[in-house]
Design a protein around this nucleic acid. Structure first.
Lengths: 149, 149
DNA sequence: GGCGGAGGTCGATGGAGTCCATGGTGAAGA
DNA sequence: TCTTCACCATGGACTCCATCGACCTCCGCC
């Protein structure tokens, strides 16, 4: 993990479909060298995958909301997590410090679907209550952080 | 935008580095046809880009937090946004319904850096107060939602 | 029925991905 | 200081992919 690896990660966070030849040009190495470095970063788990970023509105998922969950005192955390994981609308899930044990990012098509999702989450065994905030607009998302390390 | 386009998007959300030939095999078209479809999806803005997903801990960004911002009554929203945008630690920024105008996702290396970031955000003109919640662990993040549309 | 456009396949070619042998560099130990 | 070892970049070779042009097919429309 040297500065070239960091630069490769930075480049791949900007454009994950860059060819190895292009990456090689940018970092001043040969394509095979870059290929091997990237392979090692993937094997080590430093690079976890490559994702296309989409326009959610165009895909009919124009409603983004954040849901905080307060657990029952006797809740089985694994059961709650399993139930949440089974809901495809739940895009991200963090285990938090504080009163709300989980913070979810969810995407649905309509407010009606959001309502149904909230009901489902509230009915999940182990969930005591939820607090939902709706995103009116997304200013930016998953912006790659430059100058790593 | 038909079912093949949706399938292509789904495949690219799972692995953005799939070759056109591989995508073509999966959807049962020729590689040039897939190339053209993907190009159109990019041009239309439906596909906004391709991002490598990384292990933040391995990159020294092991601390994730969510910050809610309450604006001053007389705040210039654009100024606040510009200031937030200039902070590389702010990975995502949503404009919210509710008391807290903005919800940020931030990544830093240490709690000390988080403290400094919170101070900086609080000092930003237009920001009245903030509320920070720390993610103890990330259960999952940016999970691609299957069966779109 | 003929026409035109959108969107597909096929074939060719230049370039990229990837494997392999080679050689250079730096660290550890005699 | 010299040897050895491990690691990694290089350059060549071969395969596969990206991409362009030509043509084909289906459909809606005059």
């Amino acid at each position: 993990m040297d500065s070239i690896d960091l630069r490769l990660i930075e480049l791949l966070r900007e454009n994950a479909r860059s060819s190895y030849a292009e990456l090689a040009r940018q970092v001043g190495l040969s394509a095979p060298a870059v290929h091997e470095r990237v392979g090692k970063l993937e094997a080590a788990g430093t690079i976890r995958g490559y994702r296309a970023e989409v326009d959610y509105e165009a895909l009919g998922l124009g409603v983004t909301a954040l849901i905080g969950i307060i657990e029952d005192s006797g809740a089985d955390t694994d059961d709650v997590l399993t139930a949440l994981r089974a809901m495809p609308e739940v895009e991200s899930c963090y285990f938090m410090a504080g009163v709300e044990s989980y913070q979810l990012t969810v995407r649905v098509g309509t407010i009606a679907e959001l309502e149904q999702l909230i009901v489902r989450v509230n009915r999940t065994p182990g969930v005591a209550s939820t607090r939902t905030a709706i995103a009116l607009s997304t200013k930016w998302e998953n912006r790659p952080q430059p100058h790593l390390g």
